[in-house]
Every structure is written in C-alpha cells, then in structure tokens.
Nucleic acid binder design. Structure first.
Lengths: 132, 132
DNA sequence: GGCGATTTACTCGGATAAGCATTGTCCGAGTCAGAAGGG
DNA sequence: CCCTTCTGACTCGGACAATGCTTATCCGAGTAAATCGCC
C-alpha cells in the first residue's frame, strides 16, 4: 500500500464536503482553491470517487459535488481504495519470482498481515471523525 | 510503504545465500538463474545491499556475494529499507496540501500507525526464519 | 406583456501530454589464474 | 626447472536507456439561466 497525493486529496475533499452539509453542491473550483491544488487534476480525483458512488456530481451552472452518503458512513478505506485500488499484499510481484514455496508463502503472509492491519485501521476512521 | 520487485529479490537473494552457508562466495549469475530474474538487474539490487553493509562482495574469478552477518541477525526490515528507503507515513505528501491542521494530523497519525506496524512486523522475521 | 426557441456562460467528463520512479541494459574497473619467457 | 611478467577470462561496479505509473492539462458533453424574437 502507498499514500498518493491523489488519495490524500480525495480524503480532504470529502472532509470539505462534509463540513458544508448536504444543502447545495460544492464546485470543484472551490475545493481546489481551498486545498491549494490544481483544479483540473482535482477533478480527475473527484471523478473516481463519483464512479465509486461515494460522491455524486451535477453538471451545469450551480452544479458541483456532494457526498452520496452520510459522513459517518464513509471510511478512509472507501476513499483510498477507490483511488489507489484495493490494498493487498502485492502478491503478484512475488509470484513471478522462482523461490522455495514456503519462503514465498512466509513473505507473502507477512505482507498480507500488514495489508490487513492497514485495512482495518483505515476502516475505523470516518470522514465525520476528521471533519469534526 | 510498498513492495517492489527489487525488495522481494533482495529478500530471496538473502535466503539463497543463507542456505549456502558462509564457505565460499556465491556468484550473482547463480542467484539470478535460481530466481529466474535478469542477471544485470539483480546485480543492481545486490549492490544496494552491499552498500548497506548487509551483504559483502568480492570481484574477480571465484568472486561473488556473501552475507556479512549471521542469517538470524538480518531482518526483513533491514533488506526492505536498504532497497526501498525508510518506511514512513509519507507525510511529505500531506504537508503540501492546505487543510485543517487537526484533520491533517489525524490522517498522518493513521498512516504512521500503519508504518509502525509494518516496521515492527518486518523486524520480527529474519532471513534465518525464511531459509528454514 | 407573455411565451418559447436560442444563445451563452458555467459545470463536470473523458481523452491526451509531461514528469518521475522503477525496471532493465551496457560497458568499464578490479582480480585471480594460467601461460609464456627468461634466468 | 623455477621465478617473474604478462595476458586473458571472469567477477562486480556504476553510468546509461526503456518502461510504467503518477501527476498535470486540454478540449468536448451536458445543463440551467438569461437573452432575444415573436405572438
């Protein structure tokens, strides 16, 4: 697992939306200025979260982004995995190396343990927690 | 943190050397064939471990690589950090984003917790454990 | 003045470049063994 | 025959490309409001 700039932007964008409530859509432009990040790039990140059905978007004037669920129903894991892809032990890297199967297995389970821990930890924290 | 092909190769190379004992140097060519990986690339990985003083190398005919320490004194963390660099929470990515300080801090400590867990887990396992 | 088609301004959406890290390759530096030559 | 010198083969070492992923940018699709024209 890794922490991209993109996934961090996704989390903070979620916090920004949570703070505004669900009244009206918030424009990407406003979020970008708030986070001090390039507008066009942030949009691409937000798009991924819309595809993952975590955010919802509306086009046209007065359009923008909103949370699709309540802030306490959105975990960090939801956002991070929507952007980075699933958090696993990267076992595909191991399988293309020839080595003793039990050594491969031991290393793989070590990495899987780390991945499991990361998943459970990120699942505990919600957007609501961070927006407080 | 992430699991590169390079760090996996470093671990398996360490296992290969541990299995041979400390009698004579093992050539990179032999390790590369054993792991089914490009020879020239593996050398670059082994070089990093030599620089980190985990392996030792000898040139010339009958040269090769050896472990510098006992297999039970070399942890997975030693090898992985020698190749990937230190395992941290990638907090540098966070600091260039403008956001509420407490939200940034919460996210950063979540990632630091994962990094700490990964470090402690990788520190528990030694090359000797995997070579058995 | 009221209604509707049209234009306009504004938003997100997806396809397209630029930058950087990881992976892969090549040639040179160092080292020992063995052969060649002279004593 | 023995010692010294030289050549050559073999190893690692570090500098140089190629590939893939992350980041950044651009232009087009969609939408609602405002404008203009007609009734």
């Amino acid at each position: 697992m890794k922490l991209n700039r993109a996934s961090a932007l996704g989390v903070f964008a979620g916090i920004h939306l949570a703070r505004q409530g669900k009244k009206a859509p918030i424009q990407g432009k406003e979020i970008a200025e708030s986070l001090g990040t390039p507008h066009d790039y942030l949009l691409k990140v937000l798009q991924q979260l819309v595809k993952a059905r975590i955010f919802m978007s509306e086009r046209g004037p007065a359009g923008g982004f909103q949370l699709r669920k309540d802030p306490d129903q959105i975990t960090l894991l939801d956002i991070v995995e929507a952007i980075e892809g699933p958090i696993d032990g990267d076992s595909n890297v191991l399988h293309e190396i020839q080595a003793q199967p039990n050594a491969k297995h031991s290393l793989e389970s070590a990495y899987n343990d780390v991945a499991r821990f990361a998943r459970s930890l990120l699942k505990k924290t919600t957007i609501k927690d961070l927006a407080a």
